[in-house]
Amino acid sequence: MKIKDIPFRQLLKAAHSRAGLCIDFGMCVVRLRSRENDFLQALALLYQDFQVVEGQFIDFHIDMQRPVNYRRWMQAQIVFSINGAKPFDPFPVSHALPLFEWGLNWCIAKQGHHHLMLHAGAVEKNGKAIIFPALPGSGKSTLSAALALRGWRLLSDEFGLVRAEGGLLQAMPRPIPLKNASIQVIQDFEPSVVLGPLFPKTRKGTVAHCQPSTDSAERCKQLVKPAFVVFPQYQADSQTVLEEVLPHYAFLKLASNAFNYEVMGRTGFERLTDIVNSCICFNLTYSDLDHVIARLDGMVSQ
């Protein structure tokens, strides 16, 4: 059953219980236990099209609870724990959602070695996927969000998950964290966009999460073949320029930017050469979202 089809009070009851609230994210099932109702409300909005499941194998057992120490009387805090361990320092309780998102990404990066994990956004249309490998600041989150709002299926804004066996892309659609000016950019771009609460003063400035589309959430288990690799770079007032790059350049950029290229050993090498040899690889400079989306639409409609 989808999160949005379950009365909120019932969701809270599940999250408060020992058995927890179990959500299927496609590549993993998470058991979440928390008593922070504001956090759960934001979560229920952003993940409204995801399935709540019972009796399935759970990959990550996550608790978001207040720590038991004297600090709780001074400033309300929240601790992320995974399988009983607490790998991070506490956060202010108001920032529970960014902590959960960040913590879950950390868990996947640490345990997901049945995939080559590229640090990349990824979207799909007409059965053709584009991988957007990029460093922070390149605008890949904004670009992924804009594409998702124009009918592209969001695979991920952070993880380009390439299956070790077969090399297909595994989706991991999640709310896209928009930072600072990007929030307004996306609201202007598509006024009907559904955003979660604003989180001021995070490590990356002000953050708001963009809800993944119903289609992206419903097809989160559907694999897809990568067709293009595009290295985006936002540059104010620039024209949209797509420039094909050589395979070795794309290879080295992808490898140095991956979460676990070294861990994957020879398999990592093979999956990456497959991608570079079967995809067309571009450098993209852009400033206008409508313009760049028109170009990318053209690429996947051929």
Partner: peptide, 13 residues
């Protein structure tokens, strides 16, 4: 099996 495979890759590395 997936969890086994992921853990084995890390150990092999």
């Amino acid at each position: 099996a997936e969890n086994f495979q992921a853990a084995q890759r890390l150990a092999d590395y």
